[in-house]
């Protein structure tokens, strides 16, 4: 195994170990924190495809996180109430099955990403950042005013959606679902980035014109990567909704977009396990420093500053075997 692969596996194993030890030590709260880290890491793995490998600095990925969450919340609340989600043009029933909700969340996210990506990718640089942010804000304000699903107050559903063969209310079992999906997403991401498509995507980040001189259309590459990235973030949003049994416009806010970016930058941009390390450290800091001061994010800011200035490879770049990009 190459050193990078060992490092990636180790970071993932560390997260699993935290959950297992906490479970054995009878600390379900910590298991739930590890679950939250796994879900945030999943969102980070998604954003990393666009930001890290594709060089698309999206400041609006919360929109996909939120859409994934809202699709889950809406279907789950209808399933609980026994009412259909849609009656026109055809009847769509609610669902409380994760295996049904995930594809739904992913499809809706993909459609949203296709539209947002196709329009945003006509710009680049700081304009791209602003356009993605603008789309996210539009959806955010729409959610706030959408009274049918709680508006500003958000939408709760009382029973966590089910997964065949597992009790999703048991913290360790729900963690297993989140960690399993995280592992799948990391595997998928590794395959994508090593494929010819992924190589061309990374080449396009390095130089768009040279890629075009090789007969490749960067727009198509980048849009595909943007949609794939969004779909993974949408899946994370679905899990996050289930973790809290609650969705609110906060999931769509620009703070959330920023947090997903922080996971990626903190852990290591364009590194497979970067977002896992980033999300883990973020949750850890939130717990440890958050207990000391409610201004803990000021310290997070300093840490980010240090990372950006002195360790552009993020936390992963500092670990042995983390020097080279995946």
């Amino acid at each position: 195994m190459r050193r990078v692969a060992i490092l990636n596996a180790t970071v993932f194993a560390a997260l699993v170990a935290v959950a297992l030890v906490a479970h054995l030590a009878g600390a379900p709260y910590v298991v739930t924190l590890a679950t939250k880290a796994a879900i945030f890491a999943l969102a980070g793995v998604g954003l990393n495809l666009a930001l890290g490998y594709g060089g698309m600095v999206s400041f609006g990925h919360a929109v996909f996180f939120g859409i994934g969450g809202y699709v889950t919340g809406i279907f789950a609340s209808h399933a609980a109430a026994g009412t259909p989600v849609l009656t026109f043009p055809f009847t769509v029933a609610g669902s409380a099955e994760m295996l049904g909700l995930w594809p739904m969340a992913m499809v809706v996210t993909a459609l949203a990403a296709l539209v947002i990506g196709a329009l945003s990718l006509r710009t680049s640089g700081v304009y791209f950042i602003m356009v993605t942010l603008a789309f996210a804000q539009m959806v955010y304000y729409f959610a706030i005013s959408w009274r049918a699903y709680g508006g500003e107050d958000g939408l709760s559903f009382y029973v966590r959606n089910s997964f065949p063969g597992l009790n999703t209310f048991a913290p360790l079992q729900f963690f297993a679902i989140a960690a399993g999906l995280l592992a799948l997403a990391m595997g998928f991401s590794a395959l994508v980035t090593r494929s010819r498509f992924g190589l061309a995507l990374q080449a396009a980040r390095a130089n768009r014109q040279r890629v075009m001189a090789s007969g490749i259309r960067p727009f198509a590459l980048q849009l595909t990567a943007f949609v794939l990235s969004a779909v993974i973030v949408g899946l994370a949003g679905s899990l996050y909704a289930d973790l809290n049994r609650f969705v609110s416009p906060a999931m769509l806010s620009w703070h959330m977009s920023g947090e997903i970016m922080v996971f990626v930058i903190l852990g290591g941009v364009g590194r497979l396990a970067g977002p896992v390390a980033g999300a883990g450290v973020f949750i850890l800091l939130e717990q440890v420093l958050g207990g000391v001061s409610e201004y803990w994010q000021a310290l997070l800011g300093l840490l980010l500053l240090a990372i950006v200035l002195y360790a552009p490879g993020g936390i992963l770049g500092l670990l042995p075997g983390g020097r080279r990009h995946v």
């Binding site: 010819r196 190589l199 061309a200 990374q202 080449a203 390095a206 890629v211 090789s214 007969g215 990009h325």
Partner: peptide, 14 residues
Amino acid sequence: FGPLTVSENLAVAA
């Protein structure tokens, strides 16, 4: 493409 390896550079263009 600086960050890519020689074989990756070739594969991208193929």
